[in-house]
């Protein structure tokens, strides 16, 4: 799914990381750990195809099969949950959009508030909606940056359930206990 050799990223003279070698097979789980500012987010952005590596070789799957959820939930605050998902459903040209969206909203406990604006949501609810947004198009590679952020116990349990799905995962977190056992590959930044 992902293959990287000697991957490096720098911004001008500032090196973020160098010499990352990586092979992630389909169905694998890459756990990226490290303190704040160690380069986890940048690596995820490179692996999502959002940032270009400065050096090294990198093979990625096609863009439409990738899902990426960053620090912020990547949804429009002034649109409702339903409008957000409908917009992305259109852009991804999903067949049977309404059913899939309804199912996801139901699953993440957002169905009741589907017509409310995201700005009225708590941070945890927004994160749940962000998860709906990245799962919408059934990506085969899913990259999540600190996905447990802001989630309450129930939300975290829902996320644990998501990881049971047969996808390829890249997860960055500074508290790896919850997903440690799932990891097939590990990358620790200092």
């Amino acid at each position: 799914m992902i293959s990287a050799r000697g991957l490096a990223k720098r911004y001008g003279d500032r090196r973020v990381f160098t010499g990352v070698d990586l092979d992630l097979a389909a169905g694998g789980f890459l756990l990226v750990t490290g303190p704040n500012g160690s380069g986890k987010t940048t690596l995820l952005r490179v692996l999502a195809g959002l940032a270009a590596p400065s050096a090294g070789e990198l093979q990625l799957p096609e863009r439409h099969t990738v899902g990426y959820l960053g620090h912020s939930p990547n949804v429009y605050r002034e649109l409702s949950a339903l409008e957000n998902l409908t917009l992305f459903g259109r852009l991804y040209r999903l067949p049977e959009r309404a059913e899939r969206i309804g199912m996801l909203l139901e699953r993440f406990g957002l169905w009741e508030m589907r017509r409310d604006r995201v700005s009225t949501f708590s941070r945890g609810m927004q994160q749940r909606l962000g998860l709906c947004r990245v799962l919408l198009h059934e990506p085969s590679l899913l990259l999540l940056d600190e996905p447990y952020n802001a989630l309450d116990a129930q939300g975290a349990a829902l996320l644990d359930g998501v990881f049971d799905e047969p996808r390829t995962w890249v997860v960055a977190t500074h508290e790896p206990q919850r997903v440690e056992r799932r990891a097939t590959e590990r990358l620790a930044f200092a």
């Binding site: 999502a48 195809g49 439409h64 990426y68 960053g70 429009y76 991804y92």
Partner: peptide, 15 residues
């Protein structure tokens, strides 16, 4: 709106 919510990441990845 795009800047505040990091929407460019989501839009750019769309097909």
């Amino acid at each position: 709106a795009e800047r505040e919510q990091g929407m460019f990441d989501a839009l750019v990845l769309a097909p």
